[in-house]
């Protein structure tokens, strides 16, 4: 019961009859078109590394701390660093009612899968007995928050100067009115037939995260994997320019203005 409540309690909006109108998606995009994406690095003062991502209407801040002493001590590993991610949604982040603050079953699962992605990516062997904390705060949600979080966390880790084997980007595919679509919106996520979030390493093209919810045929999964693989370059370029901007005077004015934060 609790599980359902978390997933559905706030979805009081009416289900749209169809998710495609005149061959276009409800927000005017074509099947394989991504929503607008902006990324900025160095948005927080206290964190060792930070980033902000604005993807569709998603707004997410990520802060990275560490490597630092691993506490409590029994959670540490004498051979490597432990990655501790925490994915949290602000109580005011959804377009409907207020959510209960604090972790729920969904955010606990997401924190785990996000930690797994970066355990495989960070050169953890370089920092034995330490922990690296990745704090993810979803300020506004619009479908695809876990993918936006992973994409942003990758930038925040790079900004913190933590060595990684590769950069990772994440994007979801969905199934709306029987068609596989790239980067599903909130409506397509809620009312579509399927949701397939993926995280892919930029250079080795490996899937670090793959989840699937909803009914999907093998051919449709293959299509989703290909669509995600084809978007890696686009997302990576945004990550790269966010980091490059740190070393030029061209700070993205748009993003600075939108993130109301000193």
């Amino acid at each position: 019961m609790e599980e359902m409540k978390e997933n559905n309690s706030n979805q009081e909006q009416n289900q749209p009859k169809q998710l495609f109108v005149n061959g276009k998606r409800l927000d005017g995009r074509s099947e394989y078109e991504m929503r607008e994406l902006k990324i900025a690095a160095n948005v927080l003062n206290s964190a060792n590394g930070s980033s902000y991502i604005h993807w569709g209407k998603n707004k997410i801040v990520v802060g990275v701390y560490g490597p630092k002493e691993c506490l409590p001590k029994h959670t540490s590993d004498i051979f490597k660093a432990i990655i501790k991610s925490s994915y949290r949604m602000a109580p005011f982040c959804s377009s409907e009612g207020r959510d209960k603050p604090g972790p729920n079953r969904r955010s606990i699962e997401l924190s785990k899968v996000i930690s797994n992605v970066f355990e495989g990516l960070v050169v953890t062997e370089a920092f034995p007995k330490t922990e690296i904390d990745i704090f993810i705060e979803v300020l506004q949600s619009d479908g695809g928050t876990r993918c936006a979080s992973i994409t942003a966390a990758s930038v925040a880790l790079a900004h913190a100067g933590i060595p990684m084997k590769d950069m990772v980007v994440a994007i979801a595919c969905g199934k709306a009115d029987g068609k596989i679509v790239l980067d599903p919106s909130k409506e397509e996520d809620n009312f579509g037939e399927s949701d397939i979030p993926m995280a892919i390493t930029v250079h080795s093209k490996k899937f670090m995260l793959l989840q699937l919810d909803g009914k999907v045929k093998k051919e449709e999964l293959e299509k989703a994997l290909d669509l995600a693989l084809n978007s890696v370059e686009t997302i990576y370029n945004k990550q790269k320019s966010a980091l490059e901007n740190l070393y030029s005077q061209k700070l993205d004015q748009d993003i600075e203005a939108e993130l109301v934060m000193d």
């Binding site: 899968v113 490996k206 670090m208 989840q211 093998k218």
Partner: peptide, 11 residues
């Protein structure tokens, strides 16, 4: 396919 979950650290 009705559910998929990748496990572990590597890709």
């Amino acid at each position: 396919l009705v559910a998929v979950q990748k496990l572990g650290y590597d890709g």
